[in-house]
Measured scan of single mutants.
Amino acid sequence: MEVRTIKVFTTVDNINLHTQVVDMSMTYGQQFGPTYLDGADVTKIKPHNSHEGKTFYVLPNDDTLRVEAFEYYHTTDPSFLGRYMSALNHTKKWKYPQVNGLTSIKWADNNCYLATALLTLQQIELKFNPPALQDAYYRARAGEAANFCALILAYCNKTVGELGDVRETMSYLFQHANLDSCKRVLNVVCKTCGQQQTTLKGVEAVMYMGTLSYEQFKKGVQIPCTCGKQATKYLVQQESPFVMMSAPPAQYELKHGTFTCASEYTGNYQCGHYKHITSKETLYCIDGALLTKSSEYKGPITDVFYKENSYTTTIK
């Protein structure tokens, strides 16, 4: 009895394709271990004539594949690729409408935090270190965002349907971005203890939790000093293409032309909904596939993004 075979390709990165001759009487799992086709788990399936010449994702289970996976995804987590594939199996079914010149995501599976993050990423200057993220990001900007969303979920250790947080998501993504040249110098002034300067680099240099107003941050924000008295913390120097200011959701007025974009969060910790506000020729609110415009805006804002380049204080 002759062994019926077909020729397929296996890959971990969709760049390096490895030619395989597979036995049609055995499952993919018996031949390769966990195997995925377009995100779908085909591990328990036997090869079919229609699979001839198709590319299958496999887990990096030998040295060659491990090197290829690390170079593309910059992670050695053995569960990463499987999590990416199972997320992709959902995100490829989502709709990605162009809204006001940006790629958004039609609401499904509690994905409003991903839509808000995706919209924000198209408006701030950011370059990702893992080629996987950078490639998928370019495709997302062009309207094909399924891979990018699935990668975000995998890097953030999230599953489809789980509630997510924009600030946490951005923080994970910033860790995989090139923020080497970003720098922030802060000064804390206390009447009792004097003053202390701190220099922050990388992710810490672009994120701040405690106030939404970048102007206020430049002037000074009140913080408790270690001595128990009130101290003032203010920005001395900022070198970065953008800054992200966050605070627990509270009524906040966004003035046209003073910011790049913002995240609105309605609801409580267990259950809520994100919308995205962007400042173009007027203010726009993007909620999944829905767009509304207004000249002014007041609502429960939790993150505001500002364009920056270089700032030095005039406070002496």
Rank of each mutant, 00 (worst) to 15 (best):
H273V: 01
L291H: 15
T91W: 04
I301D: 01
A40T: 12
R167M: 00
A87S: 08
A69V: 08
N49V: 13
F9V: 08
Y208G: 09
F70H: 08
H276T: 05
T282D: 13
I277T: 02
P300L: 08
G143A: 04
K95D: 15
L151A: 02
I105P: 01
K218E: 03
A136V: 02
D180T: 10
C285H: 10
Y72R: 09
V21T: 14
E204S: 10
V58G: 05
K298G: 07
D180R: 08
L102T: 04
Q134D: 07
K46Q: 15
C182E: 02
D13G: 06
L118S: 05
K106R: 08
D165N: 14
V243L: 09
K127Q: 15
L126F: 08
F174L: 11
K106L: 11
L37K: 11
K183P: 01
N157Y: 07
R4Y: 13
D109P: 02
F259Q: 01
A262G: 00
S25G: 11
S263D: 05
P241K: 10
F148M: 13
Y57M: 14
Y265I: 01
A177V: 08
A40C: 12
Y57K: 05
T314G: 15
P34S: 12
T258F: 07
C190V: 02
Q134H: 11
A231M: 02
R66K: 14
D303S: 01
Y208V: 12
T116A: 12
Y208W: 09
L291D: 07
Y311R: 08
F32E: 05
C190M: 01
D63F: 08
K298L: 15
H48N: 14
E125D: 14
K218S: 04
V160K: 03
T232I: 15
Y96V: 03
K191C: 12
M24P: 13
H51V: 06
C261L: 01
L81Q: 07
D109H: 07
T198K: 14
L114V: 09
G33V: 05
E296K: 10
Y269D: 15
Y172K: 12
T278G: 08
C285P: 00
D135G: 07
G194K: 06
F305M: 03
S104L: 07
V67A: 12
K158V: 02
M209Y: 15
K158Y: 02
D109W: 03
F148G: 02
G53T: 10
Y214Q: 03
L173W: 04
R167G: 01
Q123M: 05
S240L: 00
